[in-house]
Design a protein around this nucleic acid. Structure first.
Length: 669
RNA sequence: GCCGCCUUAGCUCAGUCGGUAGAGCGUCUCACUCGUAAUGAGAAGGUCAAGAGUUCGAUUCUCUUAGGCGGCUCCA
């Protein structure tokens, strides 16, 4: 057989024609697939000249996706073993795992999942081979006659529609090019199961090993649309090894421990009283202090940055939201109106027309009224209006989630009115301002996302869009941060940059947004007088830095795992006497600290010393100040820090300085 | 809004195959108190989420409502 020459893992090699990946990588057990040119393929594929080949190892991102996808097939096989009537939806790999959707008469129970887990382990041990087979559309239809959802996917492909776009995850079933079915072949050659799938897959189920686990089941709409039937989705996670699985589960446990809803009640920060209503938080004293510090620092920085402060009501007549367009577009997610001031005569006829009042879902219309309150000169621009504005949105009951998705929340909302010429500088300084401020709160790892025009849905002229988008992009690139495009992701009224921050355990959160608006200045007919005396339309920039205080509070709580840096900590110093006789001594130290503006408390309860240490530790107080006989004699105190380390015999004046310095520098300790 | 699960003391959770309930932590009281993560004893605390139904009897079974959790959809 003639040899062919091709680039294998970057090295030119000569191999016999017809060689498969299996043969090529026979001595590399961690290789589960290969990348041929730009395409991922099964190891069983034959190699041809010219296309460079790279090994895909099971631990690589591609390898893990393949593992997870194969694991989804094993799940589906397990489900159909016990439930042959289950109709198959789609089963793609996702971050950290996979899912598979099934149409079944009754939803799955946790016990079902356990049973599937066991059945999957058996299938894995059987070492079934994944075998790829090209079929024609007619053959596929015949084989999958009892699988309506698969037939629908075939139909989508046949119609030339992009199946991946038509159904999220469906790209895993039918890709571009030929239709393929994967057979799961037992060692004796019999076919255990099959599924319409583009692949690639692991060579054998055995490679899945024991690094997988089914995690939950939930309903999901077929092809992601509320109009379609709901299927039962089973989620699982899968890793290259049991150790990797354990590490993943430990990360989940850590996230669970940091959950702001849990820490919020453990540290007595906030709650959601049922009597008030879903998604409407109340802040307790300790959470209230944190929030106050967050706001105070933000206010100070905004003053320094040349912002003007405004305050606007929570409720307004309907006309304002007709002008802004909210009632046309977003009435569904607004609280319904109260109808006021209607008067009826004795016959029940309307004598005086009533008025609808709405809770505000956004602050911008109010700020526009401030702008429009009198004639504006170009000399006033940029005019930056800032407000901690509380808004109310009637979120669907299923989406309310702690403080990250509430129904009542406070935006640190600013609207900046500037000329088109000023737009670039304003955006550039805004982005710098936003990033600097976020860093002061302890977030350091950012990336940006640029949402650009949706050609189907936008207002404003093309050239303004283009200029604004180009400006946003340049400003974003100049920041040196990673920039991810989000084509078509802009709202209809203007392009947007969003700042995403990664927290201490690597999760990213969307924080600030900076958004151009070409719509509201038109709707409110906003104008300023230019230097030449002409009336001009200002450019409007919406900007929320925290997004919402509640959400930012939640993110910081999870980022710090409740151990806030001293400047934010509700109790900054807890003084713990070694025994009761030192209460007075420490009370004086606490008074000194309070005089220096420190939130210091004395634990003069009748717990024993060790218990007090423990209490302060579980409350995550940054500084514990301890005093006993030795300290009193020396006119000193002893520190115990969060990590358990100590610094004993510190003179009181120095101790106060240590604490006040840490607070002023906003450092973590 | 949709699907599933859940709701027992302030918190975390046992329990009752239908006969009105327990623990730990926390709270309160008393005693104890000298060096870095839990002193001991006692007490209080529950319309078993709310309402309706079935039943001799419901915290337990059924339905409705509210709230929560996990997804889906949505997120100006």
């Amino acid at each position: 057989m003639p040899d062919i020459t091709l680039l294998i893992d970057g090295i030119d090699r000569s191999i016999p024609a017809g060689t498969t990946g299996t043969e090529l990588f026979a001595d590399r057990r961690d290789v589960v697939a290969m990348r041929v040119g730009s395409e991922l393929k099964d190891l069983a594929a034959e190699l041809v000249a010219d296309d460079p080949v790279d090994a895909v190892t099971i631990g690589s991102p591609d390898g893990l996706s393949i593992l997870r996808h194969s694991c989804a097939h094993v799940l589906a096989q397990a489900v159909q073993q016990t439930n042959p009537d289950a109709k198959l939806g789609i089963g793609p790999p996702i971050t950290d795992g996979f899912y598979y959707d099934f149409d079944v008469a009754t939803p799955f129970t946790p016990d079902d999942l356990k049973a599937f887990d066991k059945a999957m382990a058996r299938i894995v041990r059987e070492g079934q081979r994944f075998s790829r087979r090209v079929v024609t559309e007619d053959e596929a239809r015949a084989e999958l006659a009892d699988q309506p959802y698969k037939l629908e996917l075939i139909g989508l492909k046949g119609s030339g529609a992009d199946a991946a776009a038509a159904a999220e995850g469906a790209g895993a079933e039918v890709g571009a090019g030929e239709l393929t079915i994967y057979d799961n072949v037992r060692r004796d050659g019999s076919v255990a199961w099959k599924d319409l799938c583009r692949g690639p897959h692991l060579p054998s189920t055995r490679l899945i090993g024991n690094g997988f686990e089914l995690t939950r089941s939930a309903a999901a709409y077929w092809r992601g649309s509320e109009k379609n039937p709901q299927l039962q989705r089973i989620y699982g996670t899968a890793w290259a090894s049991k150790d990797d699985l354990r590490a993943h589960l430990e990360r989940l446990a850590e996230a669970e421990r940091r959950d702001h809803r849990r820490l919020g009640s453990e540290l007595d920060l906030f709650s959601f009283p049922e009597q008030i209503g879903s998604g409407l938080p109340v802040f307790h004293p300790k959470g209230g202090i944190i929030r106050m510090e967050m706001e105070e620092y933000s206010r100070r920085r905004h003053v320094e940055a040349g912002y003007s402060f405004v305050n606007t009501p929570h409720i307004t007549k309907a006309q304002l939201f007709k002008t802004s367009g909210h009632l046309d577009w977003y009435a569904d997610s607004m609280y319904p109106p109260m109808h006021l001031d209607e008067e009826l005569d004795a016959e029940g006829n309307v004598r005086r027309q009533g008025q609808d009042y709405y809770l505000k879902p956004m602050n911008c219309p109010m700020h526009n009224l401030v702008f429009a309150g009198r004639g504006r000169s170009y000399r006033e621009l940029p005019l930056r209006l800032f407000e901690f504005g509380t808004v109310y949105r009637y979120e669907k009951s299923g989406v309310v989630h702690g403080m990250t998705r509430a129904r009542g929340f406070t935006q640190d909302d600013a609207h900046i009115y500037c000329t088109r010429v000023q737009m670039r500088d304003e955006l550039a300084s805004l982005l710098t301002f936003v990033l600097e401020l976020l860093k002061d709160y302890g977030l350091n790892d950012f990336f940006l996302e640029l949402s650009t025009k949706n050609p189907e849905k936008f207002v404003g002229s093309d050239d303004v869009w283009e200029e604004a988008t180009r400006t946003l992009e340049e400003v974003a690139l100049a920041s040196g941060l990673e920039l991810q495009p989000d084509p078509g992701g802009a709202a209809f009224y203007g392009p947007k940059i969003s700042v995403q921050a990664k927290d201490a355990i690597g999760r990213s959160w969307q924080m600030s947004t900076i958004q151009l608006d070409f719509n509201l200045p038109e709707r409110f007919d906003l104008e300023y007088t230019a230097a030449d005396g002409s009336r001009q339309r200002p450019v409007m920039i919406h900007r929320a830095l925290f997004g919402s205080i509640e959400r930012f509070f939640a993110v910081l709580t999870e980022h710090y795992a409740g151990a806030f840096p001293p400047w934010l900590a509700p109790v900054q110093v807890l003084a713990v006497p070694v025994a009761e006789v030192f209460n007075d001594y420490l009370a004086a130290v606490v008074a000194t600290l309070r005089g220096a503006g420190v939130r210091a408390e004395l634990d003069d309860g009748d717990e024993r010393f060790n218990k007090k240490i423990r209490n302060a530790t579980t409350q995550k107080v940054p500084f514990m100040l301890i005093a006993g006989g030795e300290d009193v004699e020396a006119g000193a105190v002893s520190f115990r820090f969060r990590d358990g380390s100590q610094r004993n015999g510190v003179p009181i004046a120095e101790a106060v300085e240590i604490v006040t310095d840490a607070i002023a520098a906003r450092v973590q300790v």
